[in-house]
Design a binder for these strands. Structure first.
Lengths: 208, 208
DNA sequence: ATTTGATTCCATCTTTTGATGGACAAATCT
DNA sequence: AGATTTGTCCATCAAAAGATGGAATCAAAT
């Protein structure tokens, strides 16, 4: 039996899915406390009670957004893993950076949501934590930073986190950073990719 | 004639300064919309009207917190610059990472405030932008990424930003990341320093 | 045609929140 | 001392925000 969220995803034009989508966009822009149910309802063009009818409390809707995000990221990581399987590390990194950047710049609210869930004390679910831990372990092993998935040293996880953070930071902070760099959107993406490669590839490919 | 903020800093036990300090702590934890004036007043142990008497609107108080933060960061950057002046790049980076980490882990709300001001659409002042632009240019020149302070290419600024972000991310995200790494607070700081050096130093010191 | 169930909106409630006026006390000035 | 300014709290307001009950609408089932 599909969960409510899965149903919503199956019918992307359903009211429930439209609300989720609008909520995701707004929560990504302003954070949990920066968004009111009325803002979401207005974005969809419906009444607040319709929103409550489909999703219940505001917090439930927010949790659904985070779960949705987590699923999306997991899917993307699997896709990248398939893409780079068997390739040498430098190539893996390069492809991963490209694909991740393209995805995250295409869905900038994802990066914002992630940062909000990392840094805000308003963390409502530990769901993302568990999933992220697994992802980290997988990536660490794939990058040769650990041999055993269940025995990843903190240093290895920290290195993966550093890479991960670098990517989502530039995406989430575009509206702040791009004016600083004084470049247009396309150039910004290119500069970010180049910068990430410049910084990350030497560290992981030098020596043995 | 000193501004209100300067006065508050001169007398750190004054009511105005105590309010600013509490506000800074709470805004750093929960963001602008996640904090109510009543929360701040309660933290200080005063009535809301006393808060309004000293600081006026909530937004004015928030802006004062950001200005305060900006001053603090600037002072720290100057301190680091003095410390590493004339040293080779690898050493500069190492010392900068150590000092910056120690400072930012000692004031974790600073990192959070910075992230909030970067990524939230609720940006109320462009003060930080201007100052940060100058800092970036200075650091870029100091790192040999640009020759002229007033002509820093976007690539150079992006590289400095990447370093900068890496540091504040690990600090702001400690409550989220540390459980993931399963280490105690002191070990966390050490692992972060090691990781940052591992990633950043090779990128900037390899080849010519 | 009637019943049933799912959706949607309007009106409304309660709590939270930002903000202020005024009383009162302490400190400062004349 | 008496007047004035400063600082603090209590009571209260108005707007915002989360939430709900119930009526109206519509489609599907009987």
């Amino acid at each position: 039996m599909p969960t409510a969220l899965e149903k919503a995803r199956q019918a992307p034009d359903s009211m429930k899915a439209r609300i989720l989508s609008a909520a995701r966009k707004l929560f990504g822009e302003y954070g949990f406390h920066g968004v009111t149910t009325r803002m979401i309802a207005k974005e969809v063009g419906i009444d607040i009670s319709t929103l409550h009818y489909h999703w219940g409390e505001k917090q439930e809707l927010y949790e659904a957004v985070l779960t949705d995000l987590s699923d999306e990221i997991r899917a993307k990581l699997v896709e990248i893993e398939d893409l780079v399987h068997g390739k040498p590390l430098a190539v893996r990194l390069e492809v991963a950076i490209d694909v991740m950047c393209d995805h995250i710049f295409g869905n900038p609210e994802s990066a914002n949501l992630m940062l909000f869930s990392y840094f805000s004390k308003n963390r409502l679910t530990s769901d993302i934590d568990v999933r992220l831990t697994r992802h980290l372990a997988n990536i660490a092993v794939a990058m040769g930073l650990a041999v055993d998935k269940s025995q990843v040293p903190p240093q290895a996880n920290a290195r993966v986190l550093a890479v991960w953070n670098s990517v989502i930071n530039f995406a989430a902070g575009e509206s702040f950073f791009r004016p600083l760099l004084r470049v247009d959107p396309q150039t910004y993406v290119d500069v970010v990719k180049e910068t990430l490669k410049f910084i990350l590839i030497p560290a992981f490919t030098q020596k043995g």
